[in-house]
Design a protein around this nucleic acid. Structure first.
Ligand SMILES: [Mn+2]
Ligand SMILES: [Mn+2]
Ligand SMILES: [Zn+2]
Ligand SMILES: [Zn+2]
Lengths: 144, 144
DNA sequence: ATCATTTTGAGAGAGTTTATCAATTTCAAT
DNA sequence: ATTGAAATTGATAAACTCTCTCAAAATGAT
């Protein structure tokens, strides 16, 4: 699996180049761990990486995840009360279904909803820049 | 205006009665101030009330607004990074359009979107308990 | 290899919300 | 009206999450 995540690595490299930032051991390490996740908190990332690299600082995790957001590889999302970084490197816009029982997160896209959002915005004289749609409930397993 | 907000006052009284809680001067005061707002932060509430009652504690504001949430008079909502308490005493479910230029908040309801949300949930085996839909953008005034 | 520039790690600090606890207030029962 | 158990308050400490600071280390263009 030596050439896994090469595309994302290249995207990071490109962002770094454009902003006179440097490619560090930590940035590579955090990126490869991050790309194995779908949605993860900075704290969880910190504990996970601490196993192999106990001296990695929490501030570095935050800084780096925020850097990934700037580079378009991640998006910070506030689910409930916790902030999770969404691995968006290999996907486009999507919204979320969140199980309050087991924390499971399902991603979805619905063009009709997106269209109706635009309609609502237009009716009120708004131009939408971003939006957030989260459906909270119980998944089929947790319902029983 | 002596009989303004009597219905909400009664709803609070009912909630207090059911949970062996007491009606205090502070709770009456905070409720009447809260009902004059649409969406307000705890901090803003604190500063506003400090003018007439400088000894009201911030913890009491938080405790009381959370009590209003339990009583169904308020709902805590996380807009962007700040938490606002939404005065829902006289309205049903609704979602929000938020101007990132001037902070203006417009409430809306769209049955079609609600229906499609249910559809998405069903398709994924979920039962929705709550949801959050926020559209961020610029209002007509801020666009120019 | 040099060295200006960027990054890191550790801890301090900021912002927001909750917990603690002695003093005060409420309210149901006299 | 008085009493007294229980709830509430205000001040402040604490918790939590995230950002800032800064000396030391790493990076990468030359
Ligand atoms: Mn996602
Ligand atoms: Mn509202
Ligand atoms: Zn579940
Ligand atoms: Zn505006």
């Amino acid at each position: 699996m030596a050439n896994k995540h090469v595309k994302e690595m290249e995207a990071l490299r490109e962002h770094l180049g454009k902003h006179q930032l440097k490619l560090t051991r930590q940035r590579e390490l955090i990126l490869s761990a991050f790309l194995r996740q779908e949605h993860i908190t900075a704290e969880a990332m910190y504990h996970q990486l601490a196993k192999s690299d106990p001296h990695l600082g929490l501030a570095t995790i935050y800084r780096t995840l925020n850097l990934f957001c700037d580079a378009g590889l991640a998006q910070a999302r506030h689910f409930g009360s916790q902030t999770k970084y969404d691995n968006v490197s290999h996907k486009g816009h999507h919204d979320h279904l969140i199980c309050t029982g087991c924390e499971k997160i399902v991603e979805f896209e619905n063009e009709e909803i997106e269209r109706l959002q635009e309609e609502v915005a237009t009716q009120n004289g708004f131009t939408i820049k971003t939006h957030r749609l989260e459906l909270y409930g119980l998944c089929s397993r947790c319902r029983h």
